[in-house]
Design a protein around this nucleic acid. Structure first.
Lengths: 140, 140
DNA sequence: TGACAAATGCAATTAAATTGCATATACTAA
DNA sequence: TTAGTATATGCAATTTAATTGCATTTGTCA
């Protein structure tokens, strides 16, 4: 039986057991348009009546990161946010005023990474590119 | 009387008083080749027999950031590093193995920022671009 | 269904960073 | 040089993010 999309399979693929909390976190990440912090995950789980201790949520995002399911993001907030790792390379625009986060793609950073390899003999495995400024609303 | 370079003047320029701790932090930042975290600043001050409470050091880097003297940097460590703001646009290479930090310049990100303005009506005021991977030593 | 490794809950702990308030100090003006 | 004052600091308490140890629970597979 073919199946369109299934969080359980994704967890199986990386040899993680499909617990209610993990499945819910995966679903939240899949439906969210912006990187999510641990507090937001905790609130989401509470609303869904899935009880999960903060320690568990931290363990979940760390495990997901280790297994390559998610990518940690830092936006100068003093905490981490997380987003799915298997989405196309993209970056974020964060508004200094309202804090809203938008995605942006097409940064063509591959060329730069090749240049780094040549110049510095440094092999890039990942990068983070974030922009801060004023969103269209807050410029008014 | 012309003066080559003077931390005190830089502080005066942004209307901050030239205290021993602030002067020492400025000097440390000016001589350092990589962004520095608060713990490193504290150790440096201790070695120089300049006593400064951690709370004071946090206040100093926050004040420097607010006044535009320094720029906070995040390298997925769960803490901030700081570097002088008035140096040419550049980015960092952080080694996943040894944690060493190298600088890299010539990223030509201006074009991308103009593109963002056009596409998203988002005005970029700052950006952060960090690369993670393997330095030349750790590839062996 | 039963066994067992893996995941969780709970409590304690660590580390980064912030805050309130009393005291000390850098700067300004006299 | 000194006195007055706004500013900066020290200290202690607190907040928030994140981690850890250990007993208990649960998902998975035979």
């Amino acid at each position: 039986m073919t199946q369109s999309h299934n969080c359980k399979n994704e967890l199986n693929d990386v040899e993680l057991r499909a617990t209610p909390a993990r499945l819910a976190v995966m679903k939240l990440l899949e439906t969210s348009s912006k990187p999510i912090d641990v507090q937001t995950i905790i609130s989401f789980l509470e609303k869904k009546d899935i009880k999960a201790d903060p320690a568990t949520v931290f363990r979940i995002v760390n495990m997901f990161t280790e297994k390559g399911l998610v990518k940690p993001i830092q936006l100068h907030e003093g905490k981490f946010r997380y987003e799915l790792a298997n989405i196309a390379d993209h970056h974020h625009l964060m508004c200094n005023i309202c804090g809203d986060i938008e995605d942006i793609s097409d940064c063509n950073i591959d060329a730069l990474e090749k240049d780094i390899k040549k110049k510095k003999q440094f092999t890039v495995t990942s990068h983070s590119l974030e922009f801060f400024g004023l969103c269209s609303n807050c410029q008014k």
